[in-house]
Write a protein that binds this DNA or RNA. Structure first.
Length: 670
DNA sequence: AGTAAAAGGTTTTTT
DNA sequence: ACCTTTTACT
């Protein structure tokens, strides 16, 4: 196993005795090294149950542990504890939560749940009414989360990140107080709570027990951990715990989640005597690709120690293609993907990367038109669709009848039930007092329903009582609740049939779980990241193209990478133009995107793009090439013009000119 | 008074 | 596609 490793990697695998920080540049065999290290630890006789591997996604953990199991002689290698910080927090809190005064039957709120709850509090307290401008609920939730996960004071967060909200500090304070009170009363935890309670556990009476659980702790993607997570790591370590963190400061792209590379910089301060090993030989990309990536990084004001080098000096220059508009870009990329496949590069070996989830909208249309199958990662998830949330709310009530948020969502699905009826029912069913009896009260028929909702509420009662009985699998419960959905969906959604089909899919997913609670928790902590509309006939499915946000592409690699929408305003996103910290993160995103490529990299840039996301009108602006790419254009090969097919010639150019003139004109008065 | 339907405006990235 | 606001209906 050691033979395939270079000297630095071998040192990182073999190192014992002090905490270890591995600074590993993109494509330097970080995963391979981590896997080998776990295998070496097991080889030295460690009990797999006493090894903890914290990763950024659960998929990463599963993959690594699978690879360990493949090389380690110990049959129990699969028993290594692995997962995200949040998933681990969940496991530990179910076991030890009582000592922290926590009901172990808690429900986990995902992002939109907590935002909704924040919105409920916001309106209940009368903020945002009567014309007074008040931050939107998303903003309120954002302020809260940033404050908590960076452990900063409200005033500081407002000053640095939300200066336009400073006037509302007092109102925000009371909203946060009420939000926290409701979470506790509803027996729900949000993402931030999971980490906070875990940290709390390590400082409490069970702290020693927790620290005795693991002799070896390994953490991947350490540059993307936040201060609370750093506290947890410290809280889980005994003086003799074997700790190993791996990260790359040049790939820190989760600042918006309060992650900070400070955790890497201060590693030696927090863990005295720590050793640092740097990996800088890249095994992934050709030298021309690395030259571009290094040049991008070189534009940063921050100082990065590593310059990646590779023995793969062969290879072609990356390509930079300028397109007239998004349509041209989509057609070009689709063609380029097929061309590459002709040259023997499977769809599996290719990816299209972009900054924001909706950047692939146009391309997806084109791929569908040409029957090119693809899976999309990142962006809006199927779990966040309103109707899926509806069904999950039904399950959550069954799982935790104190869940006020779920109750309100479900009751307002009933016909004839609006805010007023909701308030009355909330009182009569005890929902506002967050009691577990609400469910039995509802099933017993407490609470008068508007006549229009009679049939629906009867259906809901019987479905609930059926599912609450026990002895029914989660999948059957979903199936049973679908009857209720079919009664209420037509009034709420334009395409009820398609939505109901999604419910069937949910039932299929639920079939993998024996417990409703587990199903719900797993779904919020590890949502299916893939929203795979697969174009083309099903039998072609075995080879598909990957579309992914840059964030979701972290840690992955492809032979050919197509980066699209490389325009200023997209990358860097115009939301980040304000400050250097944000810009630095955008620059690292470009770096991450480029270093995903092994053999071929193409950067695409449409000259015009729609002002409005949902292109209802035809207003365009002219874009500049991304400021991170413009200065290093010389490192790219730039074809004279994109291929133009016959059906594109007829008129498109003229329309483009007309638009151009119109835009110029309207810019005079807009 | 209270609900439903229609219109208008917005949307970075994610555990 | 979704949330909010406005308007129309009962």
């Amino acid at each position: 196993m050691f033979d395939e490793l270079n000297p630095q990697q071998q040192a990182a695998v073999a190192h014992t005795g002090t905490p270890l920080l591995i600074v590993a540049g993109a494509g330097t065999g970080k995963t391979r090294t981590l896997v080998a290290r776990v295998a070496r630890i097991l080889d030295d006789g460690a009990d797999p149950n006493r090894v903890l591997l914290l990763t950024f996604t659960r998929r990463a953990a599963a993959e690594m542990i699978g690879r360990v199991a493949a090389v380690a002689p110990d049959r129990r290698a699969g028993q290594v504890w692995g997962g995200t910080f949040h998933a681990m927090a969940n496991r530990l809190l179910r076991t030890f939560g009582r000592s922290a005064g926590l009901s172990t039957g808690f429900t986990v709120l995902d992002n939109s749940d907590s935002t909704d709850l924040m919105g409920m509090v916001r309106t209940a307290n009368g903020f945002g009414e009567s014309g007074r401008r008040f931050p939107r609920k998303e903003t309120v939730a954002g302020i809260y989360s940033r404050m908590v996960s960076s452990q900063a004071r409200l005033g500081d967060v407002l000053d640095t990140d939300y200066p336009w909200c400073t006037d509302h500090a007092d109102d925000l304070r009371s909203i946060f107080t009420e939000y926290t009170r409701r979470k506790r009363a509803n027996k729900v935890l949000d993402y931030d709570d999971l980490l906070l309670f875990w940290r709390g556990l390590t400082a409490g009476p069970v702290g020693d027990e927790l620290r005795r659980m693991f002799d070896h702790i390994l953490i991947d993607e350490y540059q993307d951990t936040n201060p609370v997570q750093a506290n947890i790591v410290r809280g889980m370590c005994r003086p003799d715990t074997d700790l190993c963190a791996v990260g790359d400061d040049a790939q820190a792209i989760y600042g918006f989640r309060a992650a900070t590379v400070e955790n890497m910089w201060s590693f030696a301060d927090h863990f005295p005597g720590a050793t640092t090993i740097t990996l800088d030989q890249n095994y992934r990309s050709t030298m021309p690709i690395l030259a571009v990536a290094n040049a991008v990084l070189g534009q940063s004001g921050d100082h990065y120690e590593k310059v990646l080098w590779s023995t793969r000096s062969d290879g072609v220059k990356p390509t930079l293609v300028t397109h007239n508009d998004e349509g041209d870009q989509s057609r070009y990329v689709a063609t380029a993907v097929l061309d590459a496949r002709e040259r023997g590069i499977d769809l599996h070996d290719q990816a299209v990367l972009f900054r924001a989830g909706h950047h692939s909208d146009g391309l997806e249309l084109e791929l569908t038109r040409r029957d090119i199958p693809y899976h999309k990662y990142g962006g809006l998830k199927y779990l966040e669709a309103a109707h899926v949330k509806d069904l999950l709310a039904l399950l959550r009530i069954l799982d935790n009848p104190a869940d006020q948020l779920a109750w309100y969502r479900v009751l307002s699905m009933l016909e004839g039930v609006g805010p007023a009826t909701l308030r009355r029912l909330g009182d009569e069913l005890g929902i506002d007092r967050q009691v577990d009896e609400s469910l039995s009260l509802f099933i017993d028929g407490v609470g008068a329903m508007p006549p229009a909702a009679n049939r629906q509420s009867r259906e809901l009662r019987t479905a609930f009582s059926h599912c609450a009985d026990g002895g029914i699998s989660p999948s059957e419960q979903v199936d049973r609740l679908k009857g209720f959905c079919s009664m209420v969906f037509p009034a709420h959604y334009h395409n009820p049939a398609a939505r109901l089909a999604d419910i069937d899919q949910l039932a299929a997913t639920a079939a993998n779980y024996s417990s409703r609670g587990r199903f719900l928790t797993e779904l919020t902590l590890d949502p299916p990241s893939k929203t795979g509309e697969r174009a083309g006939p099903p039998h072609l499915d075995d080879d598909w193209l990957t579309l992914s946000t840059i964030h979701s592409a972290k840690g992955l690699e492809w032979r050919t990478v197509h980066l699209i929408h490389a325009a200023d305003g997209n990358i860097p996103s115009e939301m980040s133009l304000g400050d250097d910290i944000g810009l630095g993160e955008e620059l690292r995103l470009v770096y991450v995107a480029m270093t995903r490529a092994k053999d071929e990299l193409t950067v695409n840039f449409p000259l015009r793009f729609h002002v409005n996301r949902r292109a209802l009108d035809d207003r365009h602006v002219f874009a500049q090439l991304s400021r991170f790419v413009e200065p290093i254009r010389g490192l790219f090969h730039e074809p004279a013009a994109g291929p133009v097919t016959d059906d594109e010639i007829g008129g498109l150019a003229d329309v483009g000119l007309a638009d151009e003139v119109d835009t110029t004109l309207s810019s005079l008065w807009d």
